[in-house]
Design a protein around this nucleic acid. Sequence first.
DNA 1: GTAACTGCAAAATATTTGCATCCTT
DNA 2: AAGGATGCAAATATTTTGCAGTTAC
Lengths: 139, 139
Amino acid sequence: MTTDISNLLKRNQLSVTNSRKRILECFHKSDGALTHAVIEQQVGEEFDRVTIYRTLQTFVEKGIIHTIPTTDNSVKYALCKEACSEGHHHDNHVHFICDDCGTTYCLDHVTIPSVQLPNGFKHKQTDVVVSGVCEKCDN
Amino acid sequence: MTTDISNLLKRNQLSVTNSRKRILECFHKSDGALTHAVIEQQVGEEFDRVTIYRTLQTFVEKGIIHTIPTTDNSVKYALCKEACSEGHHHDNHVHFICDDCGTTYCLDHVTIPSVQLPNGFKHKQTDVVVSGVCEKCDN
DNA sequence: GTAACTGCAAAATATTTGCATCCTT
DNA sequence: AAGGATGCAAATATTTTGCAGTTAC
């Protein structure tokens, strides 16, 4: 586990530091998307807020995590799949955001249908964000 | 035109004020999505920044505009269709964001395919954000 | 005239930057 | 030892709130 995380960092030409390991742990544990605020809350006083900003930025640049489009103005981050299991690329994502508890789920197994674009528009990436009520909040 | 805008406001139990008319004009002219910053820039010194914040918030509450999910942390707003032409509701949106010029297009005629959710998840709304290169930047 | 809207000031939040120090390699 | 990463302080940027004055109806 710790080795996995270290390897992931090394593979991306990043030095293995405590903050980076700690933040990656958060993502692995949560199995979902996290905001800067949530991460800050989880790591507590352990690391400086600025370090978290810079770490997240670095991870995005390296393609270890990606940002998720949200309707409110919060920025959410989630692990890129190729980061965990190498081999299959994914340019498309399906995310589910619960209106109740705010949790973001990555539904990686759900297939994204292709969208027919007007002439002259070149497709690069499709993000699908579904909102509603998740299994935990459904009662 | 001005009458259209006034009617739209009255229909939503909002008093017809200069700032509201001016901001709605921006949306009609741009025919796309706008950020707070862009609006502020367009109306110039005419209105206070706080007024813009409050006006946008009011419009969202009334369903005149809606927020668009974006991958960067900017919040974009666009006119809701039922606001322009009443009669057909739309809970689903397709948006296209150009990586080059940053313009957001509302592709309202593009159909959104339904997404198969895991058990226990209740669907409420689907947002699709496609990114790539738009017709203007394509060369 | 009254309720609602706006502008200004200021508070609260969020994000970025510079620099000295510390840690990884 | 050297380069990069971190922490701290502070600068910027963004969003929210309170209140007094103004405007729409």
